[in-house]
């Protein structure tokens, strides 16, 4: 490829990329991530930590309440009552806690939440 053709090729691709780059911002805000943006957020990890600690309940596990047989292990009298409720008529309302339950913070945040004790 001689220098003139090479230069023309470079200019052409540069213009194309510049055009593409110009549209990129609209793209990032306007297309792909909309179809299925699926990034993890945690209330505790996302600046929502302004909530007092007492208002958040951290969960360690969740077991689905299976109909016709336990899937996850439910425990104690409360668990048995919930299981009974889950087996009832599907049109009946279910009980849910008034507490705000949250997953723990992301590892990158959790590391810095300890005060060194």
């Amino acid at each position: 490829m001689n220098r003139a053709i090479m230069k023309k090729t470079v200019i052409t691709w540069s213009m194309l990329l510049a055009t593409v780059a110009g549209g990129q911002q609209a793209m990032a805000g306007g297309s792909m991530q909309h179809a299925g943006q699926a990034s993890a957020y945690s209330v505790q990890a996302s600046g929502h930590a302004v909530l007092a600690a007492t208002q958040l309940t951290s969960a360690v596990a969740a077991a689905p309440l299976q109909v016709a047989g336990a899937v996850g292990a439910v425990s104690g009298r409360a668990g048995a009552a919930l299981m009974q409720q889950a087996n009832d008529d599907f049109s009946k309302p279910l009980k849910v806690t008034n507490e705000t339950v949250t997953a723990g913070p992301a590892p990158s945040t959790a590391l810095y939440q300890h005060d060194g004790k």
Binding site: P64, G79, T97, V101
Partner: peptide, 30 residues
Amino acid sequence: DLPDGFHYTHVAFAVYSQIKTTDGRSIPGY
């Protein structure tokens, strides 16, 4: 910014569960 035909960006299952808390309680929720 959503393209035509898209109204949401993320979809998931909500499952009624017995949730075990860090302080050892079990509470109902999703």
